[in-house]
Amino acid sequence: MRLASLPGVRMKIGLFIPCYIDAFYPNAGIATLELLEKLGQDVDYPMNQTCCGQPMANSGCNKDAAAAEALFVKNFAKYDVIVMPSGSCTHHVRDNFDAIEQTDEVRHVRENTFELVEFLHDVLKVEDFPWAEFPHKVGLHNSCGTLRALRTASMSELGEPFFSKPMDLLNKVRGISFATPKRPDECCGFGGTFSVTEEAVSAKMGADKVRDHHQAGAEYIVSADTSCMMHQQGCAERAGVPIRFIHIAEILNGARE
């Protein structure tokens, strides 16, 4: 049962901060926490957290993901909901988290894990971010995990009516405008270990992605997934494409730049 679907229930939120945000993009993590606090939520960050197990599982080494998954459950089972500023980690926990026995505790964790945009849009149904103003033209990058697994936006492949949860949220930010890249749904080429095992293709995809946004007039690429942006930023800097990167949590939390 998803507690989050019950109206008026005060939820205890466990915050998961993925390793690359912890180490390289702490601002995205801080913004997520501050934003949830501003929205009146009761948020805890379990200090013993590590990883959701995705890197091992995506490499086929599912058995090697077991320890991380077990620890994840140990850290987060006591919370009503688990929120994370990462689409791909959410996708792993929700859809592929099966290296360990599927106990009631594990099922509770899997069913109540939310990516930040989904949580704000579908659970808290946030109407307004009065503190947020971002007078810049941004290009929205939907990671493949959010686009085609979590389904937080419509995908061009299906020809379905347009919807975009991240854009709904960003539209509540004063002064923001959007650039429209030519291939908005194309994967940026990060792909976890793909970024190193298929380095040439990965980097080419990343360079193409940032050029597409830049040519569409984007000053910033904004995304709910920092892993994609870590890769894109590396590609943009090497290719000399002048574009900046910001996590959606930072904009919604009122970042000024």
């Binding site: 080419k204 990343g206 870590m230 930023q233 590396g234 090497r238």
Partner: peptide
């Protein structure tokens, strides 16, 4: 090889 590394930060989350 074709990408820059992430930038150092002062403090982890």
């Amino acid at each position: 090889k074709h990408r820059e590394l992430p930038h150092p930060v002062k403090q982890t989350f």
